[in-house]
Write a protein that binds this DNA or RNA. Structure first.
Lengths: 369, 369
DNA sequence: CGAAGCGGCTGAAACGTTTCACAACCAGTT
DNA sequence: AACTGGTTGTGAAACGTTTCAGCCGCTTCG
């Protein structure tokens, strides 16, 4: 029942435990003959190294922790794949934890990871401020923030510029001639949501400013200046209105939330309803699409839709979904590399903040009006 | 840098290490006064229990391993959630490993899990026969097979009846009047694929047998007998043909594979092309939908489609996708419970094979012709 | 011929816990 | 006063590794 230990292997092979340990860790420090003998003994006994003992004595594990907000979200699974690939290349394995956007849960996992003495932690935190995480860093475990910009310079982070992403999406909708925009989001404690919203606000304000001084040269962006052009040509009216951004609050960034929000939107009188929605998330957008369609609204004719993340299914949706694409696996890879770097370099590590640019992907759901 | 040990806590609180260990593990075996003193010392030093030492000494970890074929597949993430919920309720955490349908990778993860001395392993194996897994079981680590029926009675398994699922899907397509059916699948070493195919073959053969003795009472199933009825009524021709099942082989059960397969199918002359496709997987079906639509074929008019798994996005697809639904989170929960049971009971555990029934979900992609 | 160097191996200490036998004390009973 | 029993606490042994000083026998060099 109990698995054989190094000691029994040593006895069977008539060597000392030190030698057995050597064939495990420094195989060429032992002569081929004895090495063979030891390996045979191991096979015969079905020896499996005890990682706990090894970790205890050597003081280092071969594990890194990855804490994500939602394992069900393809964004995070792609990131996880990137992380895992790098980890595997360096002989490490990753313990994947799902905080499910729940603070106490996250807390529990962090404690467990620290007790396991993982070499480092990659995390998308639920809350911006996190005492536990702070302590973990103080006690010396490297932490890399994932998809979350480090505000202070005291740690590494890998993120995509969400403000830029929000601006891209919104400028695109404005460029399609929309003026009554809506931002659908929730879980505001998640910084990505707030930042995407911020980008949307920036884009709308810029457009409003440009509209209020009609003769002035627009410098915002190519997309924004195209907005002016198409508005003039489009003539559906409304383009002359000052652009507005309604906030549609949802409890979570899920498919179900989107469907519920759709019911509320469908119940609004047409003239109040935004003609274009920017969703904080593709899942949300897909739920919205489903709900709006069920309520008899056409996409993009009645309501244009753009999501965020460009998950695989975005292209396969009822109306192919426009979205903002993030380099997901890349994000995971770079994060893991940064973590490994910090683990290696220890004290003399210089923290870095890597920021990727997102990319606008236009599909039918936000097609020209 | 180094985290404080129990010894330093003991010194600061002026107690023995045994007492510190007691406040950790049997808090009410120590008087409130000293307990308080010890807790304060822990706080002051930022003590974090060393799980390696604990595991080494006590001989038990608080971890179970979960090895899945693809973390990117919503089926497995839902299962994982179920597992995790049960684990958390019992104070355990789960190490999630992604074999990516790769044998050597799976092997590496299994070795790691055994070295970690996990309390038990939940796994959907890549190959039916798996020597490593066999050894692990022999050495005493409980293993529960997930989504994979145990052939021998020597272990627990939790699965959904894939043969039944295959039959349900196929009988449904036959019931819609289709006669030239196709089964799209790959990775045949995965038993689910083979079993779904087997169910499809059974349904087709039953229908063929029924057709060849026209006057006989059909006893196959309600769905199958409706097939005969609708065939007579439908009159699109072809219903009188003997039903056939073409095998369309794909390299993997992914969205991309589906798109490639769609190109091959679109290139076939119309009369040869199946009028209805049963896909081993929703991802595959969605890829197929995307590819077929891009090639100008209409769904379900030119080709009817049914997938398997009923992932969230199935309902949100361009044409809402018919599918076979499995009780996913339930699967994970029951599997984890079975594992915990086996961990508890040890030697005197009686292995059980739990089999869930899948459910047919009809949507537009396989609508009546 | 003695010293130095080297490859191969040994033996024991150490890592941070848990566990367990037992000591110390106090209260209550005879 | 001598037991009994219960509650708190102690101290040391163990868990299975890694690591390291050092030993042995052999070759090489001066």
């Amino acid at each position: 029942m109990a698995i054989a230990s190094i000691k029994e292997v040593a006895k069977l092979a008539s060597v000392s435990v030190g030698t057995v340990s050597n064939v495990l860790n420094r195989p060429d420090a032992v002569s081929p003959a004895t090495r063979e003998r030891v390996l045979n003994a191991m096979n015969e006994l079905g020896f499996v190294r005890n990682e706990s003992a090894r970790a205890l004595r050597s003081g280092r594990t071969r594990t890194m922790g990855l804490v994500v907000l939602d394992v069900t979200n393809p964004f995070f699974t792609d990131v996880a794949k990137g992380v895992e690939a790098v980890a595997a290349d360096n002989g490490m394995i990753v313990t994947l934890c799902n905080s499910d956007q729940d603070g106490p849960r996250e807390h529990r996992y962090l404690r467990h990871l620290e007790e396991q003495r993982v070499q480092g932690i990659l995390i998308t935190p639920v809350e911006r401020e996190n005492e536990r995480l702070e302590q973990i860093i103080e006690r010396g475990t490297p932490v890399v923030l994932l998809d979350h910009r480090a505000t202070r310079r005291n740690r590494c982070s890998v993120a995509v510029d969400d403000v830029l992403g929000g601006r891209l999406a919104t400028e695109h909708l404005l460029g399609q001639g929309h003026r009554r925009l809506g931002f659908v989001g929730g879980s505001w404690s998640i910084s990505q949501v707030a930042e995407r919203h911020k980008g949307a606000v920036q884009a709308v304000e810029a457009a409003a400013a440009a509209a209020s001084r009609p003769g002035s040269r627009e410098t915002e962006s190519a997309e924004a200046s195209r907005a002016g052009g198409s508005a003039a040509a489009c003539g559906t009216g409304g383009s002359a209105e000052a652009p507005s951004l309604t906030l549609i609050d949802v409890p979570s960034l899920s498919f179900a939330s989107g469907r519920h929000a759709a019911e509320r939107l469908a119940a609004m009188p047409g003239p109040d309803r935004p003609t274009a929605l920017f969703c904080a998330n593709d899942l949300l957008a897909l739920g919205l699409m489903h709900g709006l369609t069920a309520a008899g609204l056409r996409i993009p004719d009645d309501v244009a839709l753009i999501g965020y993340d460009d998950i695989d299914y975005a292209a396969a949706a009822a109306v192919p979904l426009s979205s903002i694409r993030q380099p997901r696996a890349e994000l995971g890879r770079v994060a893991a590399e940064l973590l490994l770097e910090e683990i290696d370099e220890g004290e003399r590590h210089r923290h870095r903040q890597v920021l990727f640019d997102p990319e606008l992907v236009v599909r039918a759901s936000s097609g020209r009006r």
